[in-house]
Design a protein around this nucleic acid. Sequence first.
DNA 1: ACTGAAATGCAGTCACC
DNA 2: GGTGACTGCATTTCAGT
Lengths: 156, 156
Amino acid sequence: MEEIDRRIVTLLAKDGRMSFTDLARETGLSVSAVHQRVRRLEKRGVVRGYTAVIDHDAIGLPLTAFVSIKPIDPAAPDDAPDRLAHLTAIEACHSVAGDESYILKVRVASPVALEDLLQQIRAAANVSTRTTVVLSTPYEHRAPEIAAEAVGHPTA
Amino acid sequence: MEEIDRRIVTLLAKDGRMSFTDLARETGLSVSAVHQRVRRLEKRGVVRGYTAVIDHDAIGLPLTAFVSIKPIDPAAPDDAPDRLAHLTAIEACHSVAGDESYILKVRVASPVALEDLLQQIRAAANVSTRTTVVLSTPYEHRAPEIAAEAVGHPTA
DNA sequence: ACTGAAATGCAGTCACC
DNA sequence: GGTGACTGCATTTCAGT
């Protein structure tokens, strides 16, 4: 029965604006049943929201980079994510295992803007940085393949 | 005037299912004017699509990692993205500057699944891998701050 | 949990400015 | 590019099963 939730999530991952009518046709359920299920998936946090996929070239942020950071003072409390949250060029922040403590994904307008951003990151979080510039992106934001029996087990 | 397109893109990045009626109220335009602009942004490729943001814990893919790959034979033609595209655990593939050639973002169910995936990656693309496991994600998918005068200059 | 129907609101198109 | 009106379809709710 949770097979249907999987289908719904997969379909919404591919097209976040798909109508309930279309979801109903694809799943073989009535419109109101699909409606109910989508709302439940949203409430459970399985579907966390909806977003437009933006072309960063077109909005003036053609340069993507991964910035790995490491604290200058390893004894200091680690609140780097909070200290960096105000920098809107940072799209994502992942705490990672390994030599460095976080990997940031950043989007900027130009090499100079990247230089400036790196200075702000170092100053705001008291970290050293190691930057890997993205040259091109063959693919991104691909929809996940959802395992059977995976949906509907709340993790929160 | 392109200020309005910026607002529309920003609003849709935050809520990809926002109705044209709400977009019209937020921008001060009529519904049909907003409708026209959104369709134009989609056609220009500024808005590339819409997607649901999924909680990977809830769908049974709680383990995220970054996998950097390097060709075993640097002289061979580099078609790694094509050779890896069938692996649905790979969410993104970025060509990068630096010691390695690509950074992959992957989502799997467990450490064992990661081990298996790494073998598949090495076999499919004839590469060595270096893996950085994500421990937690303070934030991700943050909406970009769109620069003035950035929207409406087609890049294609 | 799903269905079907009823009411409200939205999407999409049009003629016009 | 913009508006306002119109049509049809989608969303949302609810009583019933």
